[in-house]
Design a protein around this nucleic acid. Sequence first.
RNA 1: GGACCUUUAGCUCAGUUGGUUAGAGCGUUUCGUUGACAUCGAAAAGGUCACUGGUUCGAGUCCAGUAAGGUCCA
Length: 909
Amino acid sequence: MAQITKSYEPHDVEKKWYAAWQQAGCFAGHPKAGKEPYSIVIPPPNVTGVLTMGHVLNNTLQDILIRRARLEGQEAMWLPGTDHAGIATQTVVERELRKEKKTRHHLGREKFLEKVWSWRDEKGGMILKQLQALGASADWDRTQFTMDPHYSKAVLTVFADLFAKGHIYRGKRMVNWCPVSLTALSDEEVIMKPTKGVLYQVRYEMVNQPGRFIEVKTTRPETIPGDVAIAVHPDDPRYTALIGQQVWRPLNRAQIPIIADTAVDKEFGSGALKITPAHDKVDYEVGQRHKLLPIDVLEPDGKMNELAGAELAGLDRFAGRKKAAELLKESGALVKEEPYENNVGYSERADVPIEPRLTWQWWLKYPRIEEAKTAVRDGHIKFYPERWSKVYLHWLENIQDWCISRQLWWGHRIPVWYQKGLDKEKLSEADLRDPAKVHVSLTGPSDPENWTQEDDVLDTWASSWLWPFATLGWPDQAAMDQAGFDYFYPTATLVTGPDIIFFWVARMIMAGLEFIRPGESLERRIPFKNVYFTGIIRDQQGRKMSKSLGNSPDPLDLIEKYGADGLRFGIVSIAPQGQDIRFQEDRIESGKGFCNKLWNASRFRQMSGEMADNSSLHAILARLEPAKFDADDHGILDRLLATTREVDRCFTEFEFSAAAQAIYGFFWNDFCDWYVEVSKAKVQDASAKANSLALQDLVLRETLLQLHPFVPFITEELWHLLGYGAEGSFLMRDASVEGTSQLVDAFAPLGVKVDLKASAANRVLQLSASKYRADKAAAGMAGVRLATVYYEVNPAYASYFTEQTAPNYARIFETNHFQAGTIPDAINSVTGVATFYMQRPAGDTAAEKARLTKELEILAKHIAGTEARLSNEAFVSKAPPAVLEGARKQLADQRAKKVEIERLLGALG
RNA sequence: GGACCUUUAGCUCAGUUGGUUAGAGCGUUUCGUUGACAUCGAAAAGGUCACUGGUUCGAGUCCAGUAAGGUCCA
């Protein structure tokens, strides 16, 4: 067996095992009769993406779930892939073109798309490689891309199907228009930001009463040429007489009517509102109600057009605003300007204010809204943390039709063809449904020369909402069979960020319900059973980590510095359920430190004695000698079972950081700092050695199993170095983790049973050691190794701290020798287990007295507190017996201790 | 405007159904180490649990309100 080196060097180990796992096909998931499936689909990162800390957290958690499922004997399958990311990817390639002073229009659609594809082949999907460096055990042979031919087929099939069902329509409506990307956006892609601007108060002169004005307030004077009316509230007494009259529009002067509409807020400004249907959603609706034709004064790129009037035409919208204000000022129409802050919608990608713009787009009426609510409300799909279900349900309550068309080239081109010669801007709903005029299919019309295909592509999310089943071969039965669709769908758990609850999670649920296993139960159609929402990783100042701020460390640098396992353990241990995470590099460092601890404890085991049969749990248990178990043995077994139980619980409740911390605490404190320290004496004792080492082997084995999902590389390496796994087998694939009850069941036939009393005594001994060392340090002898420590054991612990066992604790008590009995004029430490006497360095007893006196004071306070409680009639009569009993015992202990300390003080004189 | 989250040690955070003297990691200070690990060990200092009121024998924990910070939706 190979010698374990002095410190853990992750890099070679990581490379070695990742390659070996991959070569052995450990990541693959295949349907297996009699085995429970456990599947996860990755939230597909953008194909343009590079690994961020958010990805590290998200994918580490998925890998933990997948690896744990494997160890629990389930058939695990983690499906990876990337998203074509319409706008993002197109923007990247357009940016490269711009360097050559070209736009996509220079190339034309076909050539441009070729260029995007070659960009993708060359540079896209780098992020998947990075995930491998992190240790992700995804089934890479299944890697998917949302523009793969079969995936595209799924997307177009869904379009055609929803069109046929009447869920999809074409309409000229207000959309969120991005003047930079020149495309429509869905509501979800618009970010509202408080923006400082100016509120202009403008007066419109009455046509038939010159000199009389009606005033409105607006933040957008450049749209005044697009005004078609002034609206007031019908019940507003200030204006009732004016309704129906005409006013002069102050820019691009023309007569417009005063109309009455209940949408007007009487309280805002003067109570009168300018109506600009082409540039505001509410105004558009008002215009519709009053049959007013919109006047669009903007070009798609945000420049003013000739309808805005000669002075404004050609200006950018922001320059136009300035110019409009000047013109109003000159004409005397501008009454007042005041600073103003309001919420302005920004394009998520281009980060510029969007324009509400009237365009023809394709819209989707969501299917299965009610079922989607039921699925979550009734717990068929569980959200962790649960509170996000409220956000989800609220969105579904207020859901709006989805604008699914984008004026881009990169994406799934909408499978609609228009009969040549038709004006598609004038299609009625009836025309749309007339196959002679509009053709909708996957393959296109049989006489393509007579048709023109729709230019628009679909929103990227209109492909990713099919992810949980399009990646499993849907809609082709043969492909589904091959992918194991029937076995793996629905997937077990989705791990994602709450920021895409609407974009993705909700839509996937609706898509699954609509398209999968029609007519079957809800449970069979939902895409996943659990959704775990991660927190968002923030920097020290609490800001989101982002590329533009440059405040995100490169995960690959962190892997280089701390190892993939160190990074994984560090990030998981600081990620409590559902809370945002403030990133601290020192936590990653401590993740690495823990790996090193694990490594060295294993190394020490190897150095402590010959390795024996570790080939199975049973083999190790058979080496134990239960008859020889002492309090330490019972203690560590008890703690091992408690930790296993806690980790089991954490996995069922998705509390990953609690699981990591439970194992960390157990291994470092209970095992290394106590059990291994104590065993240093035992392995010198021929009769105790074998049992002690077997117990270490057991603890190490179980720890590696529990820890593997978190730190896969080092655990696999140690698994082999310590002889737990045979050559050619793998911890990650061939081992299985035992739950608490399974461990107990395995213990029983071999007579291994935890003595809880002994375990409790062991805990007291540990606390006593702490107390003793604290007293010793207080006496100025911290760390000093004493030749002899005398002790008088507390009768209650007489069987746990004896002449025979005392030497085991010599190292922990920093002494060479224990001697039963007392010595006069010594420092006394009263612990639970015993009173320990240490030779005083020299004469002075003042410090000692002061310490004991202080201790007595604190004790007196506690005694008073406990007495007060116990003499409280209400407490005694109402508290449950166990609590009452506890308080009584506590008082007895406190009093006994007081007597002892008083005795010691008396002895000091 | 509506909903949700957070507020506990210098920092980052735990704290299960209310029940002894509120914990951890990091940081700080002190001490220790010749054979697992200085990526180590031991100890100490450090908290009016944001505030106000209520329920209760008992509140960090439950309820109501207030304040500050944050997120989402309008």
